[in-house]
Design a protein around this nucleic acid. Structure first.
Lengths: 344, 344
DNA sequence: ACATTCGCCGAAAGCGCTTTCGTAAAATAA
DNA sequence: TTATTTTACGAAAGCGCTTTCGGCGAATGT
């Protein structure tokens, strides 16, 4: 089954390829009668332009890539997949395609990006989980290739980004906890080369200071962003001499692990010890108990990111597109007053 | 920053484009000395072939697409995202790209597939959640385009697929329940145009028959595959005259909703009423209580699917690739003996 | 009546790469 | 030494589409 090409169409209509092409692409110098003939013949013969040829000729890719950092991340994370959904929404509305790129090593990463931007396969990329100092961003900038980043690196004035005010979010959560009487609040963080992770830790520090709570390194844990890591970090803390009365986690998946550790010790979250997650995953409504969390709508983020990227590809100034949103505290069941007496 | 092209390379080396091209692609008629020169010059000048041009010339796409049906499905589902992860694993190992295509309406769906296969953008597609009677499969077959499907449609002898024995899986679960003394087992199903859904219902029927349990339509619910639907379906059942003592769900997400409904009534799953999910999602370990479920490893499925597809693109006979796996019952906490007296 | 603009389409080059074919020069055979 | 095979590369066509340019006939102007 051979595909019908431009030439086939032209022959069938007794026109030239160039005329048919222009008719299809809405050029003004084609009579409306011809345009109609061409269009109906096109659907009749099932003509679909060969994208490779088209892109070779025009230079526009009609596709964007989502690239996710190599380690500690997986396409299977709810965070990621929801974002993906949002990106796809926007991109496909324009008829473009979505490519996902997930590399497993750092060199692989740079290599993949380089390949992406030089191969002509995509017209732009959205970056996720930037590092504080992100080589990928530099690479993209140097190549002058359209991109947006979900989050920010340390220096963020020169490109497009969409971020949540991480510091504020954590401060909000901590203040809530303090309001509930907590003074000993553990922090379950993520690797600090992720800027969002760094910022959240900053927020934690700031919130402590604001509330005259001394910094205590022994109750901050830096872990991978999954449930198992959250669980063992919490286990650490709960089994210590002076366990915290609350946990602030930088992700819901970690918080879910924390919850497991709490249950495993016969305690109940929200009563014996509080925990606040981060992400607002839907699944949090069904954990045991339902998870209080800082919520940021990922799918919406994805859509906005894609829209920004598309605009930039169309020529917009990237620095015009810098959006800072705030996370929202959604109260469920894992926050509660600090126990007057500790559970020990 | 202009990208370096084949011609640039050729000029720099004082060779022809054709020679350089063949040197890079491992043709035998190039002296090893020249090959070396070309290769080092290539990395030095950062040469990356323009994929569009390359694909135009060769006709091979070096990319595959994952397409997911329009309704009742989202990229954000754990099921989907884990599969995606697996596909990406295999595909990227070969240096190919992964495209995701998620359409929102049925016409859109056919249109997208047609576009996919004629546009030359991808060399093959993996289909998910086939319908009993799946127009996409027919389209792909008619076009003689490489594809594999995750699951099967009603007639499945003529193409490549990777499936779990749905019927067996449900029978296994039901038998387990019956062994626990349950006789009144509700079935929380999915829309029956999905073949997997149909098969699972068949399994349910068969298991009932095997155990001399009469079929009772009033305790089978067909719902969307999300937690909310599961919850309201379970609510229905629990509030009925003669509530079931157990729930068999065709997905973990539904099961999670069922658990919520159970909790909401002051009952506890695994004691007052049993529930078995399907998928083996990791999150099931953290539900309240942890969810007993039929597990199928999605990431692994993704890898195998991709490998099959790649082989088929390379010329393998699709019908050689038909893999049937079995799901595994993973016992957690939501299955338990049927209560002698009902909880009413 | 002529010149002039406009509408509409064909011709042709080019996007960057692959691949077949032909052919010098070098190596082997005679 | 001459004839034959190899070796190593260049020439050229082609993949399917876009886009600029040029020019014909028809419509307008004066």
């Amino acid at each position: 089954m051979k595909r019908t090409t431009l030439k086939d169409l032209a022959n069938a209509l007794d026109l030239t390829e160039s005329t048919v092409s222009r008719a299809l692409n809405g050029y003004a110098d084609i009579s409306s009668r011809t345009v109609e003939r061409v269009q109906s013949a096109a659907v009749e013969l099932g003509y679909k332009p060969n994208q490779n040829a088209r892109r070779l000729a025009t230079g526009v890719a009609e596709a964007v890539a989502y690239v996710i950092p190599q380690n500690h991340s997986s396409l299977a994370e709810p965070f990621v997949s929801q974002l993906l959904q949002g990106i796809d929404d926007s991109v496909s509305r324009r008829g473009w395609d979505l490519l996902v790129s997930h590399s497993r090593s750092a060199e692989d990463e740079a290599e993949k990006i380089h390949r992406l931007i030089t191969s002509g396969r995509v017209g732009g990329v959205v970056l996720s989980r930037p590092f504080r100092n992100d080589a990928r961003i530099k690479l993209l900038q140097k190549a002058n290739f359209p991109f947006v980043v979900h989050g920010r690196s340390r220096i963020s004035n020169s490109y497009a980004w969409y971020d949540i005010d991480n510091k504020l979010a954590i401060k909000t959560a901590i203040n809530h906890l303090v309001g509930l009487g907590h003074r000993r609040i553990a922090f379950i963080g993520a690797p600090l080369y992720y800027n969002f992770s760094y910022q959240r830790l900053e927020g934690y520090k700031k919130a402590l200071a604001d509330n005259d709570i001394p910094w205590d390194e022994s109750i901050v844990e830096i872990t991978e962003m999954n449930d198992d890591s959250g669980e063992s970090a919490a286990a650490n803390q709960l089994d210590s001499e002076q366990p915290p009365t609350a946990f602030m986690c930088v992700s819901d998946t970690q918080a879910i692990g924390v919850l497991a550790a709490i249950r495993a010790r016969g305690l109940t979250a929200g009563q014996d010890v509080s925990v606040i997650g981060y992400d607002g995953l839907k699944i949090g409504r069904h954990t045991n108990p339902p998870l209080t969390t800082m919520s940021q709508p990922q799918a919406q983020s994805g859509r906005e990111l894609a829209d920004m990227l598309l605009a930039i590809i169309d020529g917009d100034d990237p620095t015009k597109h810098q959006i800072l949103k705030r996370a929202e505290l959604v109260l469920r069941k894992t926050d509660g007053p600090a126990r007057a007496n500790n559970y020990h």
